[in-house]
Design a protein around this nucleic acid. Structure first.
Lengths: 227, 227
DNA sequence: TAATTAACTTTGCTTGCTCAAAATCAATTG
DNA sequence: CAATTGATTTTGAGCAAGCAAAGTTAATTA
């Protein structure tokens, strides 16, 4: 069995993997994601590679093997199901659950996880809109784009929020930009680097302005995901 | 913060402490309870004693300080609230929850614990009838005796089950000896070392025979705890 | 009292994970 | 092409926790 340290490395390797599948994840990025010094990451990755969960190429980086990816997805499944349970059943605030799940994901048994999945009726997304991998390790991907490159004017709704720090999520909550919220991108100002949004909240229209950097943290869907 | 190893040692020291408060818990018993070799227990206890959570007297044994006891009770509170949550809210079988809680008890935050306590409406007992210490570290003790020394014939009900291994609890479940069950001790046979019980289950009387050793694993109350 | 025994402690070693600092490599820049 | 820079790897060390086996101590038996 993989230690909780190894589970964490695998999860981070998965989450930080470069968009281009042929690319390797560098040790610098991995060590930052895991929160250890680069040297530590190198030696841990060497060890994990001995267990055939990753491929490691010195000075190039690291990449998950199919076995490693399955394990990473399993951890991610636990994490996301737990988050949803904490929000929907235990009534925690969604800004708190990420931290909590970070610990719990390493100790819930398969049996308990199956019960959670059942109680939540086999959900496909966690409270932040992240897809929950199936028990078989399949990720049902959404067809999304960020608030930076989605079409202007057309109505859409928020699918996913990529920054899960408590502070940020509290702000998100406050201006009604939760997953599922109906919005429209009113305008983009490339000089000011801002995006203006129309948020439909309790029938009323609100205007919210965010920077390009923040706009990239929101994914929206082309077609309404509720149907 | 105390590591999960230290939390475990403190919990076991509390649970295995001798009935007589002036006595020390020996290293032999502790090492067996924690599941390590005696030498390991000795050196861990030395370390925990440096943190002033226990008193340690070489060749005599170990005993919790007030600070250590508070921490032990806190761990126990987490353990027992989690067990109850798993049974009542998540619908796990009560024979499974001990193992599960053994892991979870070290990772649930105070905030989550408070929510669990609220959802369960500040319960006083876990599914096995063990008392749940308050957030302030107070144990509300019950007035109990075992099926070995309770009076013959008089109606009573099961308050607590001391053996929490899955196999045993499945048997307990099967013959209806759950906490709260209405029973009477019909007879004791000192030659055969057995106790005969009358179990009132769905209006009907059932006869169950158990050995003295098993009888000691059940605590019953003098007065009906339901009122 | 001396010998035996059981419980406990000490010692030395291992594993897993980490860091700091030194060494190395690769990719620019001058 | 040499020098500098930035990223990466190696080295040496430390800490927490564990085991096995050798050494002590105290209590019991003879």
């Amino acid at each position: 069995m993989a230690s909780r340290t190894i589970e964490n490395y695998l999860k981070q390797i998965y989450l930080s993997r470069p968009a281009d599948e042929t690319q390797w994840l560098t040790m610098g990025k991995l060590s930052a994601a895991v929160g250890v010094t680069p040297g530590t990451a190198t030696s841990m990755v060497r060890a994990i590679s001995d267990a055939h969960l990753v491929e490691y190429e010195p000075r190039a980086g690291v990449r998950l093997t199919p076995a490693g990816e399955q394990l990473a997805l399993h951890v991610l499944r636990r994490h996301r199901l737990i988050e949803l349970l904490l929000v929907q059943v235990l009534g925690l605030d969604w800004s708190e659950v990420h931290e909590e799940a970070e610990e719990l994901e390493h100790v819930v048994s398969d049996r308990l996880l199956a019960r959670i999945d059942e109680i939540l009726q086999h959900p496909a997304f966690d409270p932040h809109g992240d897809p929950i991998p199936t028990a078989g390790g399949v990720v049902r991907s959404q067809d999304c784009c960020t608030l930076l490159d989605c079409p202007l004017g057309s109505p859409t709704n928020i699918a996913r929020i990529l920054d899960q720090s408590a502070d940020f999520l509290q702000y998100v909550n406050q201006c009604g930009l939760l997953p599922g919220a109906d919005i429209r991108v009113a305008s983009r100002n490339h000089q000011a680097q801002t995006v203006e949004l129309l948020v439909i909240k309790r029938g009323e229209n609100h205007v919210v302005a965010i920077s390009f950097a923040v706009a990239e943290k929101f994914l929206v869907q082309m077609y309404d995901r509720k149907k």
